[in-house]
């Protein structure tokens, strides 16, 4: 068997070999370059890499770390001085340690309060927090003092605030219409009787006589006698009180219809409300003005917070 040797075309093989040989120097430079670059990168990373904070080390400026929350050395000094009432230089290390111990205890309780979500559940905590924020918001605006003109304008706009309540002692007679006492009486008849009663009272007839003669009784609304205006308003109600405020001492009102019948009011004693003049009210006006400035700042702050917040109301809810 004649095994013929296959003919090989040596030219392409030679060409590939030459190309390979020609490539060698490049590969020999590239690989070390990659290696060096990687080394440089690792070195650079090493240079710029910040070591993770050592959880066992207290940062400079702090006296202690409590669950990673710092207690400032400055606060420790202030607390020591306040508690012990002497210069910090005279505070012994034992005293300093005791104060720090107390501060750590306090910090632990504050942290516990947050864990327990006290702001969510405890009114006093919420009030303290909202009050703290409000105080900070108002502080810069309160640095500005008002002028006399601003105070005067405020007083003029809020005169009701500087009005002292008056008082009244009113006898309130009522003529019930229908019912047990005046079963047969119509509204028209009651009006005639009441008008006549008012006429007689204004002519000097005694209230007891008029009551007996026309069938009036005491309404019982002003049973405490002389009452401040706010109390009289509460007891007389929205229909009778305005009629009472129009009376001066000794005057008798026209008949006034209310839900329980026709009323006649006899003003026995009246002290009118007094408005404090600006000079007398200055101090209160000043305090109120500043309070309003603070409130305006707080409202503005809440407006900003609302603008930044995502507030979603449940179906059916509104605010």
């Amino acid at each position: 068997m004649n095994m013929a040797t296959p003919e090989i075309d040596a030219e392409p093989a030679r060409g590939r070999l030459a190309a390979l040989l020609a490539y060698r120097p490049q590969r020999s430079a590239l690989l070390p370059s990659i290696g060096i670059a990687a080394g440089l990168l690792i070195a650079a990373a090493g240079v710029f890499h910040r070591a993770p904070p050592d959880r066992g080390t207290v940062p400079a400026g702090y006296a202690a770390l409590v669950n990673q929350k710092g207690i400032l050395t400055s606060d420790l000094i202030a607390q020591s001085v306040a508690e012990l009432g002497k210069p910090f230089a005279d505070v012994t290390s034992a005293e300093r340690a005791r104060v720090l111990h107390e501060m750590i205890d306090e910090e632990l309780l504050v942290q516990r309060a947050l864990v327990l979500d006290l702001p969510e559940t405890t009114t006093e905590v919420r009030e303290a927090m909202t009050g703290g924020v409000n105080a900070q918001v108002a502080a810069p605006l309160l640095a500005e003092q008002p002028t006399d003109e601003q105070l005067r304008a405020y007083y003029d706009a809020h005169r009701a605030k500087y009005t002292a309540d008056g008082s009244m002692n009113v006898r309130d007679l009522v003529l019930h219409i229908g019912g047990y006492e005046n079963a047969d009486q119509s509204m028209a008849q009651a009006r005639i009787d009441a008008t006549e009663a008012v006429y007689q009272l204004r002519s000097g007839a005694a209230a007891d006589y008029v009551m007996e003669h026309f069938g009036f009784s005491d309404s019982g609304r002003m049973k405490f006698g002389n009452e401040p205006d706010f109390a009289a308003k509460l007891h007389l109600g929205p229909t009778l009180y305005p009629a009472a405020t129009r009376l001066t001492e000794g005057q008798v009102s026209d008949p006034v219809a209310d839900t329980d019948g026709l009323h006649v009011l006899i003003m026995q004693q009246r002290r009118m409300p007094t408005i404090a003049d600006f000079a007398a009210a200055r101090s209160a006006v000043y305090a109120d003005y500043r309070e309003d400035v603070a409130k305006a700042a707080q409202r503005e702050n809440v407006k900003i917070l609302r603008g930044q917040a995502q507030i979603i109301l449940a179906p059916g809810e509104s605010e």
């Binding site: 400032l72 400055s74 606060d75 202030a78 703290g132 105080a135 900070q136 918001v137 108002a138 502080a139 309160l142 640095a143």
Partner: peptide
């Protein structure tokens, strides 16, 4: 202390 907590800054300290 003044720098830390200010004057009438609304913080109790």
């Amino acid at each position: 202390r003044t720098l830390l907590y200010g004057v009438r800054s609304g913080r109790s300290r």
